[in-house]
């Protein structure tokens, strides 16, 4: 383990002139970014063969710090851009970094259709339960009773289980992990990158400055330790007996199947059309 970690220096994958990054002190997104870069390092993916597409929000800004081909797109649409990119350039590893609001609210429709097509894209959804950059509004994953700027009396909407949504929509690979367990998160992202179809990875991250402060969850170390006490292993996955509850989320690989990948089918159909036109 030591030698494995010793060879990875995250600074080799960062745009150092952009550092230090704009994230608040203790933000979990930085840890998630490290896990992604570590997974790319482990798989020896060439930076020139890597395309990172991101939307708007705190998570959306992460692509700017990666020393690779990066694309900062419109709000909620990184999957739409990534779909076009992956169809046109099947030689690239396309990674999407998106936040919970970006991916589930504004871009919810793009997510379910990306899952349905099962195109080879790795989608990282960094879930911090809030719209952090815009001032802390309620998001589709905010747990019930949590305080936000738009729910001053506590959120009374039920929240989304993004992994269940992705599975139901047909994603080939679905997994969830917390930022506390960095090597495990790295292994999960690695498995997602190796999956031949659409891989959806939900990373449970912490928003310390907006969400944590408003809900009295302590500072960043306390929030990270909270992950340990509240996240259950995948053995306790949601069943009828233990329904979805934001504080007992299953982690690990939740779905993995070999549904046909869309890109190959698309290229076959396109080649057939071209051949027909040539006659």
């Amino acid at each position: 383990m030591f030698t494995d970690a010793a060879n990875f220096d995250v600074r080799d994958y960062l745009r150092k002139e952009m550092m230090p990054h704009f994230l608040c002190p203790g933000c979990g997104h930085g840890i998630a970014l490290r896990a992604l870069l570590w997974a790319l390092h482990d798989l020896a993916i060439d930076k020139d063969k890597l395309a990172v597409v991101s939307g708007i929000g705190c998570a959306g800004r992460l692509s700017a710090y990666i020393d690779a081909n990066t694309f900062h797109t419109t709000h909620g649409r990184p999957l739409a851009y990534a779909t076009g990119l992956a169809l046109a350039r099947p030689d690239l590893h396309v990674v999407v970094i998106s936040g919970d609001g970006d991916c589930l609210a504004i871009g919810g429709n793009h997510l379910i259709h990306a899952c349905r097509r099962n195109l080879k894209i790795t989608c990282l959804m960094l879930n911090n339960e809030i719209y952090g950059m815009t001032g802390g509004q309620v998001s589709p994953t905010t747990s019930e009773s949590r305080l936000t700027t738009t729910t001053p009396l506590g959120n009374n909407e039920p929240n989304f289980d993004a992994c269940a949504l992705a599975t139901a929509a047909g994603a080939g690979f679905v997994g969830r992990e917390v930022t506390r367990h960095v090597p495990k998160l790295k292994e999960l992202i690695k498995a997602g990158l190796e999956h031949p179809g659409f891989a959806f990875v939900e990373v449970l991250s912490d928003c310390t400055e907006v969400f944590g402060r408003k809900n009295d969850l302590g500072s960043s170390p306390e929030m990270i330790m909270r992950q340990k006490s509240e996240i259950r292993p995948s053995a306790y996955r949601n069943t009828v007996e233990t329904p979805f509850h934001s504080t007992s989320l299953p982690t690990g690989i939740l779905t993995q199947n070999d549904r046909p990948e869309y890109g190959a089918a698309h290229r076959r159909a396109a080649a057939a059309v071209v051949a027909k036109g040539a006659k």
């Binding site: 030591f2 995250v10 994230l23 933000c27 840890i31 490290r34 506390r180 960095v182 090597p183 960043s220």
Partner: peptide, 19 residues
């Protein structure tokens, strides 16, 4: 002990552990 936990959990990439 060089366990690297600080390196992994630093969100700002400020720590690097050398053995």
């Amino acid at each position: 002990t060089g366990c690297r936990l600080c390196e992994w959990l630093c969100p700002d990439f400020a720590i690097r552990v050398h053995l």
